[in-house]
Amino acid sequence: MIAEIWNWLSDSAHWHGPDGVPIHLREHLQYSLIALLIAAAIALPLGLLIGHTGRGSFVVVAIANSFRALPTVGLLTFFVILIAPHIHSTGTATYLIPSEIVLVLLAIPSMLTNTYAGISAVDPAVRDAARGMGMRGSQTLWQVELPNALPLIFSGIRSSFLQVIATATITAYVSLGGLGRYLIDGLAQQDYPQMASGAVLVAVLALLIDVLLAAVQRYAVSRGITGRYSRKRIVDPAEQQAMIAAAPLT
């Protein structure tokens, strides 16, 4: 199997032309990034707001719980059938728009719940001190709550990204491009090396992006919080929750 994958991947024909790896990789990243940015633009401010004010946390819980139970493939096929006939366009937009909607919907919960959990898990004494020293609400949010919530926010972004990368693979089934093409086409053509190579590419992509984000996180989060000094490991309930929230859906 490894030899088959190696042969497929080292065949230069698979790295050129409209069906080449670079094109599909670019498509895959494009679908994922668009969805992630839109989702972040919705989820992060909402999570900050709900966490800071403490109002509307039931929204977060409701969204997180209901979305987890929805099957991704069902959601994707449903939206394509629902929306595609109404888009009168040539090219991929017909399938791209419904797919992006699903990707955005799937990317929101992790970021929203983690941002909310991160903000609300800030030690009440710390928040009290910030207020008592005369910080305004916005100063408390940006200077104190956000920096302390960063580890959880990052893990939310990471699991959302993974979710989107994984689901973007499935969009090949509804006629889009991306690395998922090799999996779906390989299956149709009974071409296992192609399928397996595509699967390896997707897995490597997901892994690289996660490692990259982990590196950014390490750089962005204060050493005082990452506790590279901390003497004891404490199980933080919020972290526990965030870790559970990171379970794969796709």
Partner: peptide
Amino acid sequence: VAAVSNVSLVSVAALIGVPELGQLFTNGF
């Protein structure tokens, strides 16, 4: 969490033809 996520993940297997509820999605599509 694992249970709920498993139920959702199983339907992905319909794309490679494993018989489960995901077949309803591929058929419908």
